[in-house]
Amino acid sequence: MIGIEHLTKSFGKLTALNDICLELQKGQAVSLLGPNGSGKTTLIKSILGLVVPEKGTITVKEKVITKDWSYRSAIGYMPQIGRYPDNMTIAQVIALIKEIRPDHIRYDEELIEGFGLDKLKNKTMRSLSGGTRQKVSASLAFLFSPDIYILDEPTAGLDPVASELLKEKILKERTAGKLILITSHVLSDLEGIASHIVYLQDGNLVFYKTVEELQLTTGEVKLNKVIAQIMKGDVPLREPVRNIFSIQERQGKTS
């Protein structure tokens, strides 16, 4: 569903993304991991068209994204920091996004109800806590039941109840055959959600593997343990990670 070929982007001297190649399929929940500044956000923004790549192409549903902005109707995006105009109410923000998409008449308002946002709908964004704003952002991402979700630190700032609710929602969408691209620092939150891990470091793609595979090679079950093992460098991971075709082959077998 999302194809990335030789994507390169640098900001001045800093290379944010270095020749990244990835192929993400429907039904996957891809967890984008890596230390700060590894290029996760740049990758997400490139897919959304917020960052203009230097080299390489990105296709979403087989369409090259630089040509046409309409591909974004297939994507639900939840940004890392949800900042909204101070004096807009929740209801106005939701109405605004709905009116921008007049093509849609059926909305997925499960999260709005689940988070209890309808009870707060006349509160202005300025008066909301960071967590509530995250709830608004999440609700907006799911509003149009898109085929692709891009969630940037979705659970950050959410209370445990809301966090669980969101995770359930993500799982539900995954089961429904959507592609989910997710970044999170809280690895335990990805437990049971992520099917694949993409690991970036200094703009390079270190690996792109299924969770099962990683569990096998590390011998750990818990995702945070798995990742910890990898980061310590205890596990020999020096297989040719750049070779996406081999990864694709494996995926073909597993799925």
Partner: peptide
């Protein structure tokens, strides 16, 4: 500048930059 995040959110919708 303050509206950058909001602008990004709008830009993630199918609409011309």
């Amino acid at each position: 500048f303050n509206a950058i995040e909001f602008t990004e959110l709008l830009l993630s919708q199918p609409i011309k930059r």
